[in-house]
Amino acid sequence: MESFTNHIAIAAPLLQDDINTDQIAPILHGSRSLKEDYKAMLFMRARQCDDGGEDPNFVLNKPQFRSAGILVTGQNFGAGSSRESAVWCMLANNIRVIVARSFADIYRENCLQNGLLPVVLGAQDADAFTARVVAVDGHAPFTVDLVSQRITGPGGPDISFEIAAADRMRLLEGLDDIGLTLKHMDEIVGWEQRAGAAQPWLQRAQDSRR
């Protein structure tokens, strides 16, 4: 996984609550291959008008936000399906930070797994930051720094944010999640032996008809 230290980018405001993964990355409709175009997938429907042309009013279609790398949104971002393409399509568009008031659990985990920084701001900070993002309207970038846990940029003072120390470390070091766990293989095998004695039916999954 690519490590994350800081990200300097245009911040785009997508100011809705409960944006779900069907909106972020629709399930394949008509694609015939395993290789999906994650760049094009991001908010595919919202980006388009009914006639298939680009909707000029959708925030990421506006000229000043075309290269946005920070997404600013509301409550419960990423609700719905567990599909990880809803994170991959952010990365395919160089969006490496999402600032929200809250995230859906599985989506947040999928972010951490892929080096995408999910920043949660409390109501006051979120209001202030959102106002600044709207005011600057894509004409100057913000910096999100994970080392100092700060957002800096035009229109106001630095905003600090909280993130669990463990999640921060994982992102900063770009740690291989499976590698971290494989260090515990002895414990896993030990558990299997204990469970096999305590609840043997758990360690065997066999079709009794065969």
């Binding site: 797994q113 494989l182 293989m185």
Partner: peptide, 18 residues
């Protein structure tokens, strides 16, 4: 637990979730 794709790979390789 519903999980994402990275977690799925993790479970395949380790049989645990973190």
């Amino acid at each position: 637990f519903g999980c994402g794709t990275s977690e799925l790979t993790h479970i395949l390789a380790t049989q645990v979730m973190a």
